[in-house]
Computed example of a mutant assay.
Amino acid sequence: MNSLKAHCLEHGGKFTRQSGILLGRTRDYWLIFETFHPLPVGYVSRCAQIGRSWGMHRHVDCQQMRELPYYSLVLITDGEGVFYDGSFDRLIPVQAGDLLCLFPGRPHAYAPVKGTSWDEINFEFSGVVFDSWVGAGLLDPSEPVRKLVPDGERALIAEWLKKFHAVAFTLADRKMAEPALADAGRLIALISELCETWQSGNCDADVEWANTAKQQLMKLSAGKKADFAVLAREFGVGEQAYRKKFKRLCGVSPSAFRSRQQIEMACYELISTHKPIKEIGYDLGFGSDYYFSKRFKQVTGVSPGEYRRQAHS
């Protein structure tokens, strides 16, 4: 019996055999989990495993870039191809054992070698808890392709697939397509393990600059206002040059990065304490309750009060 179909029968989800872009060829598509009920703090929205995938052949052939409104991780378990990085206008080779890291609003396209297919498993996810990982370790827009298993060793790829399955099977077993905070926690644990193990060939001066700049912001106390002119001088550049370079390398402006960091701290305070919302906003450096609530809703999609109610319901 087909292995994906067997997994589907054992764990749940939906299996289909699809025809499409490659004439006379089919792909096996196991939709493991899908939900349309977001959690503001962070959630897994979709997970699928595909056998004989043709990827984005049509996009690659027409040289069209795609942009997603969410994050996605794509582990290639068999085959080879290419990844087009629209943000940096570069073409990156892809092989079995590579992980494609896709970011909201970042143009890209990818596909196996023309006339062939590859096998993959993918997770789609969103939320402020994942926003905080942008640029740190795994979630770095300047490195969309990670060499998880540099030599493509089959045994190591199989081990990583088991780890992806450990997260995916829990989702597949869910009788109701409702996200849970524990799902995001399991994915974060997987991301952490990924960060600890891979070897990157792109640790150049730009990546080092971006990591230093982000660490610089993360070391600021929660309620301290960031003085970007002072921070820029530490790099020997003017404030405008600092802001432009930060956004180019990190995918977001330094102001947005700092704001997301503060909102993540607010999320933690709202869940773990009974402090008044106004006090939380003040402690994190927001000048007024109105501005705190407005910025919080811009990032999470709900007000601080609604976020606290959802978390405790």
Rank of each mutant, 00 (worst) to 15 (best):
Lys294Arg: 14
Gly97Pro: 06
His7Gln: 15
Asp173Gly: 13
Pro40Glu: 03
Met1Asp: 11
Val302His: 14
Lys245Gly: 00
Pro150Ala: 05
Tyr43Pro: 02
Val94Gln: 03
Arg27Gln: 15
Ser142Thr: 06
Lys275Thr: 12
Leu23Trp: 12
Phe125Tyr: 09
Ala266Asn: 08
Phe125Thr: 01
Lys245Met: 11
Glu264Phe: 10
Ile191Lys: 08
Leu68Glu: 11
Ala210Phe: 00
Arg258Ser: 13
Val207Asp: 02
Ile157Gln: 08
Leu194Asn: 06
Lys5Ile: 11
Val129Tyr: 05
Asp85Ser: 02
Ser132Asp: 12
Pro276Ile: 02
Tyr268Ile: 11
Glu67Met: 08
Leu190Asn: 00
Gly13Arg: 10
Asn2His: 15
Pro104Asn: 03
Ser87Leu: 13
Arg233Gly: 13
Pro40Val: 01
Lys297Tyr: 04
Glu120Phe: 03
Lys114Asn: 04
Ile188Pro: 00
Ala213Met: 05
Ile32Ser: 04
Leu181His: 07
Glu124Arg: 10
Ile21Phe: 04
Glu234Phe: 12
Glu80Asp: 09
Thr35Trp: 06
Leu73Ile: 07
Thr212Asp: 07
Asp183Gln: 14
Leu249Ile: 01
Arg52Trp: 03
Ile121Ala: 11
Glu143His: 03
Gly135Met: 15
His37Asn: 08
Gly55Gln: 02
Ala232Val: 10
Ile121His: 02
Glu234Ser: 14
Pro179Tyr: 01
Val167Thr: 01
Asp28Met: 14
Ala311Val: 01
